[in-house]
Computed example of a mutant assay.
Amino acid sequence: MVRRASLPVVAAVAVLMLAGCGDNTPAKATGSPAASSPAAGAGASGAASPLPALKPGEVRVAGQVDKPYTVTLASLRGLPQVSVEVEYTSAKGQQKHTYQGVLLHDVLKDAQPRFDASKKNGQLRGVVAATGGGDYRAVFAWAELDPGFAKSQVLLAVSEDGKPFDDAAGPRLVVPQDSKGGRYVSELNQLWVGTVDAAVDGTGGASGAGS
């Protein structure tokens, strides 16, 4: 589904990114996944159809993308796996773990983000908002995830220290370059891809959920 998001929505992403900078604890979900699915489309009248609720463990990939879809731990386990060793600080002290999972960039790339090819390095205008249970959210610049620009290996992890995550909990976001655990979003339920153009240019024309 393609849904037009207003300027406040895109601006809120930037505000949330700044607000989360001081959080040094891995995000632990406390609520149910948001009601969402990329399957529904707009009707003949142009009104958006209601979005069915996500099942536990499902992650919606949407936003300014041509092919929104959902992923699960089961589907992620069937993709090429990457292992990373990480250290970060949390409220529980220094953490050191080995995670296995799929590169976040590969998952988002399959949704075919709609970056403006007429702009030089148009993908550098991109942002990704990751939402977990309890409406926890963390924001990334696309360049942090794109191996063409960054050496980091941000993962959708399927296991920690060899122990698989529960299917109903879904994957965990793992950010090896972060020294604090605020963007290690658990019980992930949405990955939104967009651009900052509407907020920066004041046009209010950024796209919301994909179709």
Rank of each mutant, 00 (worst) to 15 (best):
F149E: 01
Y88H: 14
G78D: 11
K163P: 05
S186E: 14
R114N: 03
A141M: 09
T195L: 03
N189H: 15
G170K: 01
D178H: 07
D110A: 15
G31E: 05
H105T: 07
G202E: 07
A74D: 15
V175I: 11
Q94V: 14
Q81K: 14
T30Q: 05
A5L: 05
L73Y: 03
A53C: 10
G41M: 08
V59C: 11
G22H: 01
R183C: 04
G133R: 00
L108T: 01
M1N: 06
A206T: 10
Y184A: 03
R60F: 11
S49P: 08
V15E: 12
G162Y: 08
V128D: 00
R137Y: 04
V196N: 06
T131E: 05
K109E: 13
P147M: 05
T98G: 10
E187H: 10
A141Y: 02
G57K: 03
H105D: 04
L76D: 02
V196E: 06
C21H: 12
A130T: 08
M17F: 02
D23Y: 06
D201L: 12
V196A: 07
Q190G: 13
G208D: 09
A47M: 12
A111D: 10
G101E: 02
Q94C: 02
P68G: 08
S186D: 12
A47K: 10
V158H: 06
A35R: 12
V13I: 15
A111L: 13
D116F: 04
V9F: 14
R125H: 11
E187K: 13
V175Y: 01
E58G: 08
K28F: 09
G210D: 04
A138N: 07
V196Y: 00
S83I: 04
T131F: 09
E144V: 07
S6Y: 08
P56I: 10
T70E: 12
E87H: 11
K180L: 08
V102C: 07
S32Q: 13
V174M: 03
G205E: 07
G210H: 01
E187S: 13
L173A: 10
V128T: 07
R77N: 14
S49W: 01
V10S: 15
G134R: 00
A74Q: 15
S186H: 09
A169T: 10
T89P: 00
P33L: 13
G63C: 11
P56T: 11
K109N: 07
D161C: 09
G132Y: 01
Q112W: 02
S159P: 07
L76I: 09
G57F: 10
G162D: 03
A74P: 04
L104I: 10
